[in-house]
Design a protein around this nucleic acid. Structure first.
Length: 630
DNA sequence: ATCGGAAACC
DNA sequence: GGTTTCCGAT
């Protein structure tokens, strides 16, 4: 039921982490890159180019300098920066555009996803969904304190609007520049940023994002699930309202929370892999309280996302479609950068996603969390080690990595516990399953790819190849020609949706409500057990199969290319473990996406929870303190 | 130029 | 956890 405790909806742990706190000044590289990209001043050093999300570093050294300045790492150079960028490959935040020097591409899909809130559904009753932060208070929310434990307990409370308090001030500190080393660069950026923010220029929106802290990143995870009959679902379409005029933050009054808050960054970071930890908690609450997605709320939310997209200058493709909802496009806030605009334009996209921006202060930082993040990175096996021959080391490594995973589970467990379910496990599945998992994973990735193809945008790609590599082909085509893409299998409607980020709707869900998923299940997961009960496999199977097929085809194709063996292998292995976990999630989600993005969830604010407010407040206060410390 | 492992750092 | 640093391989 919904005890408060259980209900606890809490934010994901990561939300509580200090890093997430607004105070944290750390800025992540991808975020920084985005920041640079959005500023015209830096167009000479880095700029959007080509496909959606694709950017070229025109002056690597300069970019490295800027980055170094921001991080107070004077020794930074492109070699190092690029290494950091490469780490994003695994995370799927970024991928390299092959053949083009210094050219990388953002996987906005993931980012975008992240922000979506929605729904899912599914499960029978309770499906947890993530709700967007509701606009209720209008405040933004901040994450509370840091301790997880506290958090957990208090978590429940968190959800209440009260929690979010304001965030108001973002500091002007440039994001992150604490270092006073004063590199000129640094200052430059910072100042610019800060100034702009305040100014409120068109850019401000963007800026808000970047700024140092993100208070709330609220995030939502989206998952798609099937809609539950019971659940309230978003209206099929929202009326197109006149968008709000807010240039930046869409939902100012109304809902402030959500919309404004999201930050893409976060999204990414976090991962899906566990999708759900939080959910559980949420779920409870939700169930009870029910989180309803009001069309309006959703609308707002979506708008916000959209807006974010715009702010980032993302390409239209970045927008996701949400199945049932149509969001009006925000008006673009800024006339500002036509240049960048090219990316943006367009949009007829239905959905949005959001990045965060807010006039007031959104920010984000990073986020990530614990359980949620997905991390694609493969477990550290020590390849080298094996080379070296130190098996011990290797083993230890791997074990450690596993342990991490487990840890995550454990956390989840808690949540679950609250619900009741005792167990969790992550990988019940055995070999076979694992393969599936893998596959699934791939699929998701594929989705993206397909998506890309279709959309022509991001293709992250990683998918299959995992390593980004493979696709050359694919990419090439895309770039070159075809966005149209021709995927053989695309045809399926299902696919599309699936591909999309959310698969939710698509998924079969329905029936399954069971499918459902959610995370909870997954978390716990056992496919067997749960699945069975729920919907066994059916639900998920179907989709999987389709996906599978698709994937298969592709793979074949790819294989033909002959590239991925190793990569795959690696990935598989690496991800396998995690995937297993994830897999569950996916299933649950329905669409899971494993990919990534998840973020947070939000919590709907049930009335009950309000009591939590006091705690929340406290937490908030703590955070504030912490922040200030910074 | 790019990739990615490993270890160190914060 | 996210780089930063170093470095060998491709």
């Amino acid at each position: 039921m919904k005890t408060p405790a259980d209900t606890g909806f809490a934010f994901p742990e990561w939300a509580y982490k200090p890093e997430s706190s607004p105070g944290s000044r750390q800025i992540q590289l991808w975020h920084f890159i985005l920041e640079l990209l959005r500023k015209e001043e830096y167009h000479d050093v880095i700029a959007w180019q080509g496909d959606y999300g694709e950017f070229v570093i025109k002056d690597p050294d300069e970019v490295a300098r800027l980055w170094g300045a921001r991080k107070c790492k004077p020794q930074m150079n492109y070699d190092k920066l690029s290494r950091a960028l490469r780490y994003y490959y695994n995370k799927r935040i970024l991928h390299k555009t092959k053949g083009k020097r210094f050219t990388y591409k953002f996987n906005f899909n993931k980012l975008v996803l992240v922000n979506y809130p929605f729904i899912d559904m599914g499960s029978g009753r309770g499906v947890p969904q993530s709700a967007p932060p509701v606009p209720s208070g209008g405040t933004h929310f901040r994450f509370p304190p840091s301790t997880p434990s506290e958090v957990l307990s208090s978590t429940e409370e968190l959800r209440s609007p009260g929690m979010f308090s304001s965030v108001g001030h973002r500091m002007a500190r440039g994001s992150v520049s604490d270092c006073s080393d004063g590199t000129s660069t640094n200052s430059e950026l910072e100042e610019a940023v800060g100034a702009e923010d305040r100014v409120g220029g068109p850019e401000r929106a963007f800026r808000s994002l970047l700024p140092p802290r993100m208070p709330h990143e609220s995030l939502f995870r989206v998952y798609g699930g099937a809609p539950n009959p019971g659940l309230p679902r978003p209206a099929p379409r929202v009326h197109p309202e006149p968008l709000s005029p807010f240039p930046i933050s869409p939902l100012p009054g109304s809902g402030g929370l959500l919309a404004p808050t999201l930050s893409p960054a976060l999204s990414m970071t976090p991962t899906p892999h566990l999708p759900y930890t939080p959910s559980p908690s949420m779920s409870s609450p939700m169930l009870g309280s029910h989180f309803s997605f009001n069309p309006e709320d959703m609308k707002h939310y979506l708008q916000a996302h959209t807006q974010s997209v715009y702010n980032y200058h993302l390409s239209p493709r970045a927008f996701l479609h949400y199945p049932n909802i149509v969001i009006p496009q925000p008006h673009r806030p800024t006339p500002e950068k036509p240049t960048a605009a090219h990316h943006l334009h367009g949009p007829p996209m239905p959905l949005s996603h959001s990045l965060s921006q807010q006039p007031g202060g959104g920010e984000e930082g990073h986020q990530h969390p614990s359980p949620f993040k997905f991390k694609l990175q493969p477990p550290p096996l020590g390849r080298k080690q094996r080379e070296a021959g130190s098996s011990l080391a290797a083993s230890s490594s791997s074990s450690s990595s596993q342990s991490s995973s487990f840890t995550g589970s454990g956390q989840m467990t808690n949540s679950l516990l609250s619900r009741g379910p005792p167990n969790i496990k992550v990988e019940p599945i055995s070999d076979i399953e694992s393969e599936e998992d893998v596959e699934v994973t791939d699929i998701s990735e594929e989705d993206e790819m397909n998506h890309n193809d279709e959309d022509g945008i991001f293709a992250p790609t990683a998918g299959h190849n995992n390593h980004h590599q493979l696709n050359n082909h694919h990419q090439a085509n895309g770039n070159g020609s075809s966005p149209s893409a021709p995927l053989p299998q695309n045809n399926n409607p299902d696919d599309d949706p699936d591909d999309e980020v959310f698969k939710t709707p698509t998924t079969p869900p329905i029936g399954g409500g069971g499918g459902l998923a959610f995370p909870l299940i997954s978390l716990k997961s056992e496919p067997g057990s749960q699945a069975a009960p729920i919907s066994p496999g059916g639900t998920r199977c179907i989709p999987l199969k389709l996906r599978f097929k698709r994937r298969w085809s592709k793979d074949q194709k790819m294989e033909a290319d002959g590239e991925r063996d190793e990569a795959e292998d690696k990935k598989v292995r690496a991800e396998g473990e995690e995937e297993a976990e994830r897999r569950g999630s996916e299933v649950e989600n329905g669409g899971g996406r494993g990919e990534g993005v998840i973020l947070g969830l939000m919590l709907p604010p049930p009335p009950t929870q309000r009591r939590a407010s006091s705690e929340l407040q406290r937490a908030t206060a703590q955070l504030s303190l912490e922040n200030s410390g910074c």
